[in-house]
Amino acid sequence: MSNSTFSSPAFAKRLAQRHAAERRFKLIGLGAIVISLAFLALLLVIMMRNGLGGLNWNFLSGSDSTDPHIAGIWSAAKGSILTMLVTLLLSFPMGVLAAIYLEEFAPRSRWIELVEVSINNLAAVPSIIFGLLGLAVFINTFNMPRSSPLVGGLTLALMTMPVIVISGRNAIKAVPPSIRDAALAVGASKVQAVFHHVLPLALPGILTGTIIGMARALGETAPLLMIGMRAFIVTPPDGITAPSSVLPMQIFLWSDEIDKAFVQNTSAAIIVLLVFLLVMNGLAIYLRNKFEVRW
């Protein structure tokens, strides 16, 4: 019967070709991954080769200088820490509260829909636009001090908040309704049920999202360029209103130097920044694995 169709030499030949195509396709897929990973490896190796020699205590504790051999990153690192503090203090409570409202209390209305669309879009707006906002509003309208961690932190907080809201909502959504029902059934009010029971259970997920958002803010350069955080800072900032730089900005400024010796500084600063980010992301993964509850 039709058996002959599938045992004919033509069919066998075609089958061999199809299997060859299958192997090629699989190889291309593998190749895509290998190329991507090779690029990552190349980037890391080059930064290590250029920068590891420059990592020493003087570099870590020094401030910017026109002399590459005494220039260090502490002033920029301190600027980063102050900026991140402002960002965290603003975006975390705001983000969590907004997430709670949208997930637990918000009525279905046009306004709330607008808020949701807003948040989803803000998460995808180019970071440089937030820089323009910071420049126009915080500096030109409110006359806040230029180049300061305060303005930098405010700008990055607006950028980070949508990330925290989105991850916060997902974490709250993952808490099963039975927990709320249980709390309500013993006579807790809705607010009490949410703050006493749902929020603690959702917190690890919220923290993970917050750390990821903060890591992104820590590596951000473009919006801070807009608000003038590219000053040449030779003393560490002593407050959130003092002119300051941040780590990625220091990398950017050094990368522009003509003196070849700055290549080592730039690469070393990149290593420091990447280590920071690695630690933060590691912490996020650890938190997720340690506290993740499967309902």
Binding site: A98, V115, S118, I119, F130, L132, L133, A136, M161, V165
Partner: peptide, 26 residues
């Protein structure tokens, strides 16, 4: 508390509005 939550979630609209307004104005 609910009012506070509502204000926090309106921050998103405020930010969007801020972006649009400042870009349009300048």
């Amino acid at each position: 508390i609910l009012a506070l939550l509502l204000i926090a979630s309106l921050m998103a609209i405020l930010t969007t509005f801020g972006i649009v307004a400042s870009l349009l104005f300048e």
